[in-house]
Design a protein around this nucleic acid. Structure first.
Lengths: 154, 154
DNA sequence: CTGCCTGCAAACTCTTTGCACGAAT
DNA sequence: ATTCGTGCAAAGAGTTTGCAGGCAG
């Protein structure tokens, strides 16, 4: 999904929900979709201010739920105090695991198709209907352990 | 593992690490192992104070890492602001998924043996060695949706 | 014009830390 | 006797919220 298309999706989502397309919301959207990697709310504030310096921290925090609800952004919680976000350029299947490198703090995502099957197991065993699933792997970098430098760090 | 055995493990862990077996630490241990379900740091403070009312919040937070390091307690992060803990009565394999019921806020654990296999996939694809894995499923209660009451709630 | 949105700053939640006193070894 | 451990209260980090004014529809 290209950025202009995603932007239009955002506008129509806002309209549909009776929300206003303010400059700040659009700046936050643009800042988010300019990112190639995961980012925090705080980083997003900086990026958005480069586009529209009137954006405040409060508005970033108020806009993030709108962007995740509309499935334009994906929230990634790696249990590190702060939450990470990333643009959902493709359809965005939930069958993805986050792999966090403990050496370089990078977050990788790799597919985990069996999670869907696992959902039905949960369903039948506990009588619960899965809404979302999250698989997170914490790992050490093999190269870092040998050389003391993480090749992906810079 | 019975509670007295676990308690002895705790004492020997403390000694081995050069830490002191204070009344507060033992009260926190006892409070934790009296629980059948998951609990928060705040709840643990209450339980521990029932045993020794001199226990402070700070000491609970300082003791929890000792208990998780010694593998007597398992930390469960469901990404809800606060962390949950539960006694590790058996050996405690890490191949367990947490299933959080969105209706009754209960946390269930069910085995997910394929996670181990998945670890090696991560390893070969990314050159990372997995340290820990976490699979969390958020789900709705089927009975709750039909009857408006969660049978496991009370 | 109306009322949703905004920035600001204060509040909040959970957790961590500095300090001087107290207790375990 | 030494230290390590403790309670207290304040500090932190990240996020949320109340309020008065501002801008989209």
């Amino acid at each position: 999904m290209s950025i202009p298309v995603a932007r239009e999706k955002f506008r129509s989502f806002l309209t549909r929900k009776g929300l206003r397309a303010t400059n700040q919301r659009l700046a936050i959207f643009d800042a988010a979709f300019a990112q190639k990697d995961h980012f925090t709310a705080d980083q997003l504030l900086d990026f958005a201010r480069d586009i529209d310096d009137s954006v405040s921290r409060a508005t970033v925090y108020r806009t993030l739920p709108i962007l995740t609800e509309s499935a334009l952004l994906r929230e990634v919680d790696i249990g590190s105090g702060e939450k990470y976000y990333r643009p959902n350029r493709d359809g965005g299947s939930t069958q993805v695991a986050q792999v966090v490198c403990l050496d370089c703090d990078r977050i990788f995502e790799i597919s985990a198709p069996f999670m869907e099957w696992y959902g039905s197991t949960v369903s039948s065993k506990l009588g619960l209907t899965p809404v979302s699933q999250r698989l997170q792997v914490s790992a050490n970098c093999d190269v870092f352990r040998r050389t003391g430098t993480c090749p992906r760090h810079g």
